[in-house]
Simulated assay, not measured.
Amino acid sequence: MFNKIMNYIKEFLENTPDDIYDFSCELEGLLIVHYDEMHEEQPKATEILNDETPDVCALGEPGMKPEEIEDFKRKLKIEYDKAMKAVV
């Protein structure tokens, strides 16, 4: 499940839709629902991903301007990269 979630984030970062609200809500929910399963697979990386990523997801709003979306992506990429560095 950890890899599935990370691939979901990677796909979003590479192919960002015009409206990111659905993604931000879905990602936040996935992190909560699948936390235990992800933690079993990659404990440290899951903890890192769940530290700040829910706060980043909370920034997603319908109808965001392109510069706001780029800021969201930048913050999400930072968390993604930190979690990837912790993968064992």
Rank of each mutant, 00 (worst) to 15 (best):
K44M: 13
P54L: 05
E41T: 11
E26W: 04
M64E: 08
L76S: 04
I32T: 14
K75M: 14
H34I: 00
I5Y: 00
P62Q: 08
A58H: 09
T53I: 07
F72P: 08
L49V: 04
R74N: 14
I5W: 00
P62N: 09
D19M: 02
D19G: 04
F23P: 06
E37Q: 15
I69L: 03
E41S: 12
L31N: 07
M1S: 13
N7G: 15
M38A: 01
Y8I: 05
A45L: 02
L59Y: 04
F12N: 04
A83C: 08
L13K: 12
D51F: 06
D36H: 09
M6F: 01
K73G: 05
G63N: 14
K4F: 09
D81N: 14
T46Q: 04
E41K: 10
K73L: 08
L59F: 06
V87A: 05
F72Q: 05
Y80Q: 01
I48L: 09
D71M: 10
N7C: 08
E41N: 06
V33Q: 11
D22V: 11
E79F: 00
I78Y: 10
E37C: 06
I69A: 02
L13F: 07
E70R: 15
D36S: 15
Y21P: 00
A86S: 12
E47N: 11
L27K: 01
R74V: 03
N15Y: 07
D71T: 12
G60V: 03
P17G: 09
L31F: 00
M84L: 15
R74T: 14
D81Q: 12
M1E: 10
S24Y: 01
H39Q: 11
D19C: 03
N15W: 00
C57N: 07
L30H: 04
E68A: 10
E67L: 10
I20C: 09
E47A: 08
I69N: 01
E79N: 15
E61Y: 09
R74G: 15
N15M: 05
E67Y: 10
I32S: 14
P66T: 03
E68W: 00
M6W: 02
S24D: 04
E14I: 07
P54I: 08
L30V: 03
F2W: 11
P43V: 02
P66F: 01
L13N: 13
V88C: 10
K85L: 12
N7T: 07
V87Y: 08
K4T: 12
L76H: 02
L76F: 05
D55M: 13
Y35Q: 07
D18Q: 12
T53N: 06
F72L: 15
L30I: 06
E52A: 11
P66I: 02
Q42H: 06
I32R: 15
I78P: 03
K44Q: 14
Y21F: 11
I32C: 08
E67S: 13
K85E: 14
N7R: 13
L30S: 03
K10R: 12
E26S: 13
Y80C: 01
D36V: 10
H39V: 06
G60N: 04
D18S: 12
A58G: 08
D22L: 11
V56P: 06
K75F: 04
S24V: 03
M64I: 06
V33M: 11
D18H: 07
D81K: 09
C57W: 01
F12P: 02
A45F: 04
A86P: 11
P17R: 09
R74Y: 10
E41F: 00
N50D: 05
I32L: 15
E28R: 14
M1A: 14
V56G: 05
C25L: 13
S24L: 02
K85D: 12
K82N: 14
